[in-house]
């Protein structure tokens, strides 16, 4: 599925700004650009670890199931953001990813990505570092959400 990614396209992604042209080429070799129609589900909460994505455009939301309550969207991702970081750690999917607006994603095949990171620690470092930055941003945002900054609702 999708079309192969070019090194140029990789270079345009902010996330990979730290990569040299040869590194970009290596990454391009394991990546594909995939269009996704609105309504599609990329993965579901509880699925085994899968591929890593970068949103190229459109909008994808992460939602969680809370027992006894309707499913709830908790975060939307847009251009330039990383999706499915659990791939890097080999964990199960922690949320469901749904496409809400027609989107394009860059899909990085998990096993090859991990292999690449192992073989070329420079690439591995850049990717892990970017993933870590994203995590830090999201952690902060989650904290704010948890604080319920709008104040307790009364009724």
């Amino acid at each position: 599925m999708g079309t192969p990614a070019s090194a140029d396209l990789i270079g345009d992604i902010l996330l990979f700004a730290g990569l040299t042209p040869p590194m970009r080429a290596k990454l391009a070799a394991i990546a594909a650009v995939e269009p996704l129609p609105a309504g599609a589900t990329i993965f579901e909460e509880g699925d085994p670890a899968g591929d890593l994505y970068v949103v190229l455009d459109g909008r994808i939301t992460l939602s969680v199931r809370i027992p006894g309550e309707p499913e709830r969207s908790i975060l939307s991702l847009r251009e330039g953001e990383l999706l499915g970081w659990s791939a890097l750690l080999g964990r199960k999917r922690v949320a469901t990813a749904r496409v809400v607006l027609p989107s394009q994603v860059l899909r990085l095949r998990r096993s090859e990505l991990l292999e690449l990171c192992e073989m070329d620690h420079d690439i591995g470092y850049v990717i892990m570092r970017q993933a870590f930055e994203e995590m830090a941003d999201r952690l902060l945002a989650t904290r704010l959400q948890l604080l319920d900054v709008f104040g307790p609702r009364k009724r």
């Binding site: 939301t61 992460l62 939602s63 709830r72 908790i74 939307s76 607006l101 945002a141 704010l144 900054v149």
Partner: peptide
């Protein structure tokens, strides 16, 4: 937060 029917941004 929103229901999955919401097409806008979700997050702080």
């Amino acid at each position: 937060h929103a229901s999955p029917a919401w097409l806008g941004h979700v997050g702080v």
